[in-house]
Design a protein around this nucleic acid. Structure first.
Lengths: 338, 338
DNA sequence: ACAATCAGTGCAATCGATTTCGTGAATTGT
DNA sequence: ACAATTCACGAAATCGATTGCACTGATTGT
């Protein structure tokens, strides 16, 4: 690799490397004529500064890590699109990692990032995450971190979420309004923050209604699609089956569709369903699915904007310890009846 | 940042930095006892080598760039999952970029990567890509590059695709078999390699049949969802509308569903459709969609395996100039009739 | 006219890890 | 007993860009 580096440029121009460096960085102490000469040659030779040398010296990488629980999920893809849209304008690069909802993987990934490889982290924690030592380490090491969607409240930094409590409440109220008497709530795990908020909304709506309620109606699902389908089918086969379902995440709604196929039950006749989901094609399902969808792209952009400000403006204070709530949107479709 | 670096370790241990470095890298010229001492302290202080210093010295980054045309697409997400699954075992990191099907963006991204930032590139070219100077530069600079799905034949390197020609043929034959007389082919752009192959399959199947055919039945769609829907609706409204559709990519199948809704036509009664797609929930659509799905995860894994071999084994030759074909799977569903 | 200021540039240290080369001590061979 | 290896480690160069400090010649102030 016949690398063209700053030393080579300096030789060709009869200047010192320091001068070339300053010229390229548009330093005020270099004359315009010299800057022009340097810029010209640099362009002619297509000079690209070595990112590692620069990062090493400046102690910053112009790289941001994005950690998500799963890739095959439109919601996360949209968030990343939003982040990229902003960060690329500032010349940042995105390292993207998936934990596959596994805390050990999450831990390992975090440990790779504590050596300065990234200037900041944007993440949604895995549904299994209970012990948060690794997240605390990120914080104490001073690496800026922003949580979104599945946040970790204990870490004093900025978090972005949607109004999950409110929408859990709304979703449940909608089913009640539509005449459901026995409403189940499907959630992925007790540990994930959004699940908890959505669940709270559900619980409060149930409590405020005059409907019966039993704790066993909150169904803990697993990561395995197959297991979930048979679990849900099991409930649907029962003589005292639910006539309303709130799915706290998209994949559980899908599992419910399969369970409905298996049990030959029909929505919205036999039971109704609302799900939190960012599927583009919710309207094309059989029956079409009533969804509560999050402003994913916008959320990603806001995360990134905050970070860019923090990283690129001088004398920025640490990220504020607060929760920013963006509103979700509810789309009524056939799965909840006319 | 009170960084614990190799110099600090060396001081604490009364050793030279070179010795510590060698000990950590398990060099044969260091005694076991010293190695143990070093390892112990390193662990105790949670020492993490600085990636930039290492990359600068070794001229390799342990980072791979993945460039895709769009993020909100299960196929690409699965491919990346496959790549990550392999590369993370080797300690590699993934920089992920989306071109949003835009060549200028693609060019810009590539230009950021030619300074050693990544050890290799895995990419699927944008549908607009016609001029391939930027890809040639990658090749001449000696950065290993692998193409998948939307490949660039002109660059002599390894490419991974699925048997697109064959499946274009099969999809068309299936519709013919089901009694379709007027079969349209929807494609995103003439420039993308896979579109061309699938189209060839369609054309040959049409030619070999005794059915009529007109060039105008090959429909060029755009990137804009709305435009595509009204374009397709336009064809479906016509008195001489198609009774069979082959969608070369998932998003066009979805647009067709919306167009069907708009025109109140029903599949499979009024027309039948097959689409290339990796949607998990094709079976839940109304009607369920007959798909040809690609082995995305496997493809990602194979790309990565090849790269890991090339990058981690000594004296590897350049990536062979060949095309590796993985078989797709066809899933018959309601959209093509019983 | 002479000190003070300043614009424009070069020298050398620096970031942190790797690596070439060299050195002293211990071991082996004859 | 003395030369020849081998072992274990240290000193210093290196990767490429940035930056604190020093230096030169020219300009300004009084």
């Amino acid at each position: 690799m016949s690398e063209v580096n700053i030393k080579y440029l300096a030789e060709k121009l009869g200047l010192a490397t320091s001068t070339v460096s300053r010229a390229l960085n548009d330093s005020y102490e270099i004359s315009q004529s010299t800057k022009d000469r340097v810029a010209e040659l640099a362009k002619a030779l297509n000079y690209q500064p070595n990112p590692f040398a620069r990062s090493l010296r400046q102690q910053k990488s112009k790289t941001i890590a994005v950690i998500i629980p799963e890739r095959i999920n439109n919601y996360f893809s949209q968030v990343i699109d939003g982040i990229e849209e902003i960060t690329q304008k500032f010349g940042y690069h995105l390292l993207v990692y998936s934990t596959h909802e596994n805390v050990d993987t999450e831990r390992k990934i975090i440990s790779y990032l504590l050596n300065g490889r990234v200037d900041a982290i944007v993440m949604s924690v895995s549904s299994q995450t209970k012990n948060i030592d690794h997240l605390e380490t990120v914080y104490t090491k001073g690496v800026p971190i922003i949580f979104f969607d599945r946040i970790c409240k204990e870490i004093p930094t900025t978090k972005f979420i949607t109004n999950d409590y409110e929408n859990g409440y709304k979703a449940t109220s909608l089913l009640i309004e539509k005449g459901c008497k026995k409403i189940y709530f499907l959630l992925l795990s007790m540990e994930i923050s959004i699940g908890k908020e959505r669940l709270r909304g559900y619980l409060d709506a149930m409590k405020e209604s005059s409907l019966p309620f039993d704790e066993s109606w909150v169904i803990q699902c697993s990561q395995k699609e197959e297991e979930n389908i048979s679990l849900i089918s099991g409930y649907l086969y029962g003589i005292d089956r639910p006539d309303g379902i709130v799915a706290s995440v998209e994949k559980l709604a899908i599992a419910t569709y399969y369970a409905a196929k298996e049990t030959k039950l029909q929505m919205p006749k036999d039971f109704k369903m609302v799900s939190f989901s960012n599927m583009r094609i919710a309207g094309l399902l059989q029956p079409s699915l009533t969804t509560i969808s999050q402003p994913a792209l916008k959320l990603g952009m806001e995360c990134a904007q905050l970070l860019m400000k923090k990283l690129n403006k001088p004398n920025q204070p640490p990220l504020e310890d607060k929760i920013i709530v963006l509103p979700s949107q509810i789309s009524l479709r056939e799965s909840t009846g006319k």
